[in-house]
């Protein structure tokens, strides 16, 4: 452990022992995982929509199909940022622009 006076030097020395391509692959894996944190948003939002939809159906059960259609259309729009996160993760895994 020569010259690890601070944590940054230690990390750089640790990472220096690998090939560059291996470090890129490893951090792409971490990045792909981190990109999926974008899934928290639509999960909360669409659940809120489902709850309000269920409440609305309880108030007026005869308009159930209109309520369901509105709820699903709004949920599909809310889905898009979750898909953005999935696309970034899949790009990092399968079409990585940093490897070759």
């Amino acid at each position: 452990m020569i010259g690890d006076a601070n944590i940054v030097d230690f990390l750089l020395q640790f990472l220096g022992q690998f090939d560059g391509i291996d470090v890129i692959k490893a951090f792409s894996a971490i990045g792909a995982g981190t990109a999926m944190i974008a899934g928290v948003g639509p999960g909360i939002g669409q659940g809120f929509a489902a709850g309000k939809g269920a409440e609305a159906v309880g108030i007026r059960p005869d308009s159930q199909s209109d309520i369901i259609r509105t709820m699903l259309l709004g949920a599909a729009v809310a889905e898009t940022t979750g898909i953005y996160g999935l696309i970034v993760a899949l790009i990092l895994l399968f079409a990585n622009p940093f490897m070759g």
Partner: peptide, 16 residues
């Protein structure tokens, strides 16, 4: 652009 992406997001989300 959001509408176009949303249109393509539908089959992606259905299949996945």
């Amino acid at each position: 652009p959001i509408n176009i992406i949303g249109e393509f997001a539908n089959p992606v989300s259905l299949s996945f």
